[in-house]
């Protein structure tokens, strides 16, 4: 039986660990001797036992990895940005920005009148927080991450994992704060670094979402390679772990509301008091965040996906810049620019 080597171009590769999944799945196909994926060139070198034509093999193997969003092609397809999609994306992004500005000016915070923060008060504060200035940080980050996942053909389970990670971490960490009686207070420098890092992440994800600069893909934050090698046999698990961790990490995002609630959790003095406070708050923020992630995944498929990604990209870039500028202002480096 002769061995025939074919080199195919892989469409849909966007993360360094994706090659592991492709290698695993294709290796299981009967008749395939070996698979080697080149992450840098986005090619897959496949050795098969069959004498079939390259096109047939490409088609058959693509069917195996299609559900994960990959296809194998003979030729490298050239990338051309679809500028016409900006005709819709730009005005839509402007309208959403105006709506965000109006929401802040509406002064919804004045609705909060709680001397004693019970469960429903914490929930109500969460509701208000989810449309306040924190929307630019947490909502903006969630938009960029879920739009990116939608672009990569992410599964619905990813967004469930994100929200579960967030709500569970708020419960657990809220309880920890209540128990040990001290909150995670960031120094001025740490807050500045955190705000800048979040802003830069949003900028890089936003640029990538625009689908205009192919080189922007390299700027994306990746899981470090040594971590992905360790989970080689469970490549799909790695895909699931990331949204869970991102959701849990939102506890530490710079958001005045979260910090106030953390201070209140501290004052409860018990694990259960702190846990329920943060849990109720996280539940309050859930509707708006769920709306963002759900819409992203839905719009990310279908014919409006291109316009959606560009709109999301513009909004994420705008929010990312705003958050970074505000971080600098809060640190006293520059005068305040974006005020409400």
């Amino acid at each position: 039986m002769t061995h025939n080597k074919h080199i195919f171009h892989v469409q849909g590769m966007h993360c360094k660990a994706c090659g592991l999944l492709i290698t695993d799945k294709l290796s299981e196909v009967p008749g395939v001797v070996s698979v080697r994926v080149d992450d840098a060139r986005n090619t897959a070198e496949v050795v098969v036992e069959t004498e079939a034509a390259a096109e047939t093999i490409a088609r058959d193997l693509s069917a195996v990895i299609e559900k994960d969003g990959y296809t194998l092609t003979i030729e490298k397809t050239r990338f051309v940005p679809k500028w016409s999609e900006f005709r819709y994306a730009l005005p839509i992004a402007l309208v959403f920005s105006a709506a965000f500005y109006l929401l802040q000016k509406a002064g919804l915070v004045n609705l909060i009148n709680a001397e004693n923060v019970n469960f429903s008060a914490a929930f109500g504060i969460g509701l208000v927080a989810s449309v306040s200035s924190c929307l630019a940080v947490v909502g903006g980050l969630l938009l960029s991450v879920s739009a990116q996942y939608a672009k990569e053909g992410g599964k619905k389970t990813s967004q469930i994992l994100f929200h579960a990670g967030r709500i569970i971490s708020f419960f657990v960490l809220g309880g920890v704060i209540g128990l040990i009686g001290s909150a995670f207070t960031l120094s001025s420098l740490a807050a500045l670094i955190l705000g800048t890092v979040v802003g830069l992440i949003m900028l890089s994800l936003g640029l990538n979402l625009l689908e205009v600069f192919p080189w922007a893909k390299r700027l994306q934050p990746h899981m470090p390679k040594f971590l992905t090698r360790a989970t080689k046999g469970v490549a799909q698990f790695e895909h699931g772990l990331v949204p869970l961790l991102i959701g849990a990490s939102t506890f530490f995002l710079p958001c005045g509301f979260t910090q106030s609630m953390q201070v209140y959790s501290l004052s409860t003095g018990t694990f259960f008091g702190g846990a329920m406070t943060m849990f109720a708050f996280a539940l309050g923020t859930f509707p708006v965040l769920a709306l963002i992630s759900f819409t992203s995944v839905e719009l990310g498929k279908g014919k409006w996906s291109g316009v959606f990604f560009k709109t999301a990209g513009l909004l994420v870039i705008a929010f990312g810049i705003m958050n970074m500028v505000n971080s600098f202002a809060a640190a006293g480096i520059i005068r305040p620019v974006f005020g409400f």
Binding site: I112, V117, V128, C134, S188, G256, F257, V263
Partner: peptide, 24 residues
């Protein structure tokens, strides 16, 4: 007064003042 928003995170950078104000 029932302040849970960002205003509670009060800071005057030039004086190095950084404090989470109590809600009320």
């Amino acid at each position: 007064r029932s302040t849970f928003d960002c205003s509670a995170a009060f800071t005057i950078p030039s004086l190095g003042i950084r404090k989470m104000l109590p809600p009320s």
